[in-house]
Structure formats: structure tokens, C-alpha cells
Write a protein that binds this DNA or RNA. Structure first.
Lengths: 216, 216
DNA sequence: TAGATTGTTAATCGATTAACAATC
DNA sequence: TAGATTGTTAATCGATTAACAATC
């Protein structure tokens, strides 16, 4: 799904603003100008003002932005003032690592269940979350108001499982499988392709070495 | 570090081309035109040709691209024809999950060691990789020709650890900590901020709901 | 009031798409 | 040779930055 109106380039930056404002808040900073923030974040002040003004005038001329207010407002924009129930499909290392990560809950993302095909995992709990078998998934989604499914399964199964999830009312998929899902336009997909991230890193290392070879 | 010459927008797409070409190769497809590939990947044929031509003329008029050749060439561009030795700092759930993920090795990314501050983990092995204490890290980097460090530690320690790693010769950091690192310009940093990814997902779910409220 | 800083319009820059001549 | 499809230039589109009037 593609967001209309506000560009994904802006949305990609929002969580980073949120993070910096959270740190300022912790440090007891009350207000900040786009100029000061731009220096900390290493972006232009113009971009900050443009980005924020997509959502409303959060600042005040001559004063800047109130840190606490802006933090709260961006949180609302990102949907962090609501609860989002999740299930994790695939209770392997990555699935369990994500289930164990308690910090998501502080932002409202609550993992309600873990699912796997491996019967030896059935009934085991991770941070109090039970691992269930796949045949329970449909009723579980209905009974627990699940909005987001986290896909941490091998790519071979990912597409068919994703389709099944969508048929059963899942609104969004956080996809860690190494494949594209091609779901209906109304389903939100956020991909985390770790191997591709590692390849970009590798490319940049290589390129740096090459461009500096002549220095030796 | 920012790559010069070729834009990061292009580099971001490169691993995806590689993935699709790998699948075509597995399916026994010998050649493909930019037009056919564009339909599969849901991008424009023009973009594919432009992207590839940043690196050279891999195609042939009237024929298209040889799948195997292009796959190999993109692999080389991404540095997948070389070995990259890695260490993982932080042997918690995520660090261990990444260590367990054998597929990275097939692309040349070899995890040589796992490091943690928790003494109860010392000596434990994950997929044959020993967990070591932090005081061994400096000599380990030197003796094992380590290029990449994977940071899976809490953000409080991330910046100081990153600086220490750079002082000891690390060239690139795959950063899973929820903070920006601000390292010297010659160090490659690839961030994987999972909580920010989840926030973007949340934003897009919310926006979809809002824009379709009136339908009810 | 004077100074600071936003919100917003206009200018620039870069990335994407379209078009087509070159050529296999 | 005729048809297909690339490589590449030109046109368009969108995102970023600069500038400044509005206003706290």
C-alpha cells in the first residue's frame, strides 16, 4: 500500500524526529528551534519545517517548538497513542528474538501470540507468550483483535501464509521473509530485508576501498 | 559515509535486482528483457536500464540481459564475490538470532565471533561460534581480519563501543542499536532501526483507516 | 518594540520516466 | 534484413533547499 498525500520520504523521517525529541525530553529540554534540531540531526532546518508542516503548525514564531508537545503530536501521527496487537509467524531465532524484545510494547505494539509449524515448540512460552500451532491462527486472529502479523518464516512459505493472513483479517504485515508479497492495495506491508541491508553495507565498504586505493 | 558517484537510491535497489535474478536463475530462465523484468518487479523498464547502466552495458540490443551473467556481475558490484569477516557485539536474543542465520555465509558474510559483557554467556557457542568477553575484542579484530561489526547492544553503550571498534580497525558497522553513531566519514554505517520500521508500518495502517472511514 | 523563528512560497536540485537512435 | 531491445539523451516530476514575509 502506498500512502497518498504525504510522501513516504517524509514518513521515513518521522520516527527519527520522534527519537530525537524523546532524547531532548529526557534531557529536560523544553523548547528547540528547527535550526538547533537540524544541527543535532544533521539535516537542514528547512527540511524539518517543511516535514512538520505537512501535519500542522506545531511551532511558534520567535519561540521554536515545544519539545513535549511536538513529541506527543508526532507520536499521535505515528499511531503510538494506540494499541496494536501483533502475532509473530515463525518462532525461530528471529521470531523469538522479536517476541523477547519488550520495548515494542512501550510504543503500543503488543505481541499476543507466536505461531510455528514445528510441533516440538508447541506450548513453550517466550516472555510469557505461548507458541501455538498454525491451525489455531484463524480463530486466534478473530478472538484477539490482531492487526499486525510479523512474518519470520522462510520465503518458500511466506507468500501463501501472507495470503492466508490477509483472508483472515490481518491489516498489516511486517515482513522479514526474503521475498516480496504482492498483497491487495489495502494491506500495509513493511519489509525488513536484512540480507539486502547487509549487501548495501558491503557495496559501500567496497566502493570506499576502491576510491581510496590510489592513496596508498 | 556517503557513496560518491552513484546515488544511494540506485544502490538501495541493487540487492532487489540481485534477488529477482537469482530466482530467475533458479527457474532456469536464460535471458530477460528490461520490460519483462519490470513487470515482475513492478518498476519501470526505464529505471532498470538506467540503474544497470550506472555500472556498465550488461545487455545486448535485441536480446536483453543474460540472467546468469547479470546475476554474477551485480554480485560482484555488491561485493558478494569476496569474504567479509564479521563480529557480533551483543549476544542477546537478536545477536544470537543473527549468528544463527546461516544464509549470510552463502553471500560471503562470515561471523567469526560473538561478544558480550555478561560473564554467564562466556564460552557458550552459537552455531559453533564462541561467545567471548569484551576485553578480548581488540586482539580478536586484529587476529581475525574483521571488517564488519554488528551492533546488537542497548543504545546507552552503542556510541562508545562503536568508537572503540573504529579505533581498532573496524571498517563498517551494521547498527541495530536505536541511536545514530556519528562516526568518521570513512566508516560505513548501515542502520537497521526496527522500532522505526514498525512506526512507519503503524503510520500507514492508521492513514489507510482514516482515508477510508467515510466509506462505512 | 526588536529579535527570533516559524510557515510558506519560490528556486534548485536530483531522480524518474519517456523517447528514440544505435545496434544486435 | 526486420524486429527487438538496449544504451542514452531529453523531458518531467518530485523532493530538497533557500528565501522571506508573517508573527510571536
Amino acid at each position: 500500500m502506498e500512502g497518498r498525500g504525504i510522501s513516504q520520504a517524509v514518513i521515513r523521517r518521522l520516527p527519527r524526529y520522534y527519537r530525537y525529541l524523546g532524547e531532548l525530553l529526557e534531557d529536560g529540554v523544553e523548547r528547540i528551534s528547527s535550526n538547533d534540531l537540524s544541527k543535532r540531526m544533521k539535516v537542514t532546518a528547512s527540511q524539518i519545517r517543511q516535514d512538520l508542516n505537512n501535519f500542522g503548525g506545531f511551532g511558534q514564531q520567535g519561540y521554536g517548538y515545544n519539545v513535549k508537545y511536538l513529541y506527543t503530536e508526532i507520536g499521535k501521527i505515528l499511531g503510538l497513542d494506540r494499541k496494536h496487537n501483533m502475532i509473530i509467524i515463525g518462532a525461530g531465532n528471529l521470531g523469538q528474538a522479536l517476541a523477547n524484545y519488550a520495548a515494542f510494547e512501550r510504543s503500543g505494539f503488543v505481541t499476543k501470540g507466536l505461531f510455528d509449524v514445528n510441533p516440538t515448540l508447541a506450548g513453550i512460552t517466550v516472555r510469557g507468550i505461548e507458541i501455538r500451532m498454525m491451525d489455531e491462527i484463524k480463530s486466534f486472529i478473530k478472538n484477539n483483535d490482531i492487526e499486525i502479523a510479523v512474518l519470520t518464516i522462510p520465503k518458500a512459505k511466506a507468500i501463501s501464509v501472507a495470503n492466508m493472513l490477509v483472508e483472515n483479517g490481518i491489516r498489516a504485515i511486517w515482513n522479514f521473509a526474503h521475498t516480496d508479497l504482492n498483497l491487495p492495495e489495502n494491506i500495509v506491508v513493511e519489509n525488513v530485508h536484512l540480507s539486502e541491508s547487509l549487501m548495501r553495507l558491503s557495496y559501500n565498504v567496497l566502493r570506499y576501498k576502491e576510491t581510496h586505493q590510489e592513496d596508498k
